[in-house]
Amino acid sequence: MFFVETKYSFEGQHPDEKVILFSRRHWFVILLPMIAFAIMALIPLILYIFTESLFARMGLTSIVLFVFTIYYVIWWLSLSYKITMYLMDYWIITDKRVIDSRQHGFFSRSVATAQLNRIQDVTTSINGPMATWLDFGNIEVQTAGTENNFFFYDIPNPAQMRGLIMEVIERRKGKQNKGSYDTY
C-alpha cells in the first residue's frame, strides 16, 4: 500500500480498527526553525546585492550565482528534511490502542503501541509561557505492568486530548460499543 486509503489510515491498521484521534506536534514547534530557514534564505540575496559590482568587475558573477544556487539547493533539502521529520512524528488513538510513531531521521523510526485496556492513567503537563498561551503540552500515558509509559510531546490542546483518551478508555472498559466514535 503506497498511498493510504482514507484520511487517517496508517500502516499496520487492523481491518476493524477505527482511528479516533490523530495528532502531530503543535505548529509552534516548527515555527522557530522555519523562521531560521527564512533568514538563511535571505543571506545570499543580501550578500549578492552588496557584492554584485565587485564580482562583475572580476568576471566572477556566473560562479557566484552557481555557488549561491548550490547553497539554495542545500537549503531546500535541509528545509524539507525538517518538515519531513515534523510530519513523521505523530500519535494515533484508535478504538483499540494508542500508537506512538516517531521518526528520528531517515531510516531510523520507532513505533510503539499500547492496548487501551493496559492504560492506567493519563497526565498532562504544560510548561512555559508560549505553551500556556498557545495551549500545547505533553501527555504521559501510564501503562500497566512492565510496559513503558507513553509520552506525547508538544500536543495541541492536551487537556482536551486527555479527556478524550480517558473517554475512549472508559468506553472500552465499559464495553459501550453500541455508539460510534467521532473521529477528530
Binding site: 503506497f2 498511498f3 493510504v4 484520511k7 487517517y8 489510515s9 496508517f10 500502516e11 490523530f22 519531513t84 510530519l87 513523521m88 505523530y90 494515533i92 510513531s101 521518526q103 531517515f106 523510526r109
Partner: peptide
Amino acid sequence: HLTRFGVGQ
C-alpha cells in the same frame, strides 16, 4: 518517507 509512512493529508 512522505508517501510510505506519512499519515493524513
